[in-house]
Amino acid sequence: MPTISNMPDSVIEFTNLIKKFAFQSQKTFKEFLPALIKGEETSKGFIALDEVSFNITKGETVGIIGPNGSGKSTILKLIAGVMSATTGKVKVHGSISPLIELGAGMHPELTGRENIYLNGAILGLKRRQIDAQLQSIIDFSEIAQFIDQPVKHYSSGMYMRLAFAIAVHVDPEILIVDEILAVGDETFQAKCFKRMEEFKQKGVTIIFVSHSLAQVQNFCSRAIYINKSKLIADGTTLEVCNAYLNNQ
């Protein structure tokens, strides 16, 4: 699909992006030094993304689909700035909130309340913002009576609720969601999707990785299909989902 770069409202641009992982053949320094001296190979290459290019404009909701190991998460990490391109360019304009894992950085010994501050800070919230929204976060999570218990005592459901409650209170221009909506019971999932719809209305650009074609079709206007490190299809959700199904 032809891409027009330097579009005024293009918020994410991948241009001929190649991501190659160089896995070290030796895991310890003790192994590395003799290997270096002997002239053995010290790294193995693995191409995670091969010449991927696409352009996402402000306010779009884009789904990324593909089999496991195809490179979807790598794309998200490149957008989030966690990884860097090997060659090619990644341009991102706007603040990002990565929901690549819920509860990143939470410490089991700290209470729910303390973890709200910690996790919020990790997601880029300033202290003032967390203070202002603290009650709203606690209410959304529905675990107010346990909020002052250490999170090591939480069930995984409670943990996830807290983490998601914090995550939905960020105020990003770009939201990246990686398969985390697969957890949680029906009512909570519904609440989360409702919140995501609100983000959509606000004009937040949303990148949504999911294995559930149904979720992608419901929620996204556009989709990108990645398989074995290559971009196979990029277009409306219907077209791309069909391409995916035809490839199975």
Partner: peptide, 20 residues
């Protein structure tokens, strides 16, 4: 710019040790 995170992480280390 990320000072809040720095403060939180120091706080986390200090508190966690005390509680453990």
């Amino acid at each position: 710019k990320w000072r809040e995170l720095l403060i939180q992480m120091v706080s986390r280390e200090v508190k966690a040790r005390y509680k453990q």
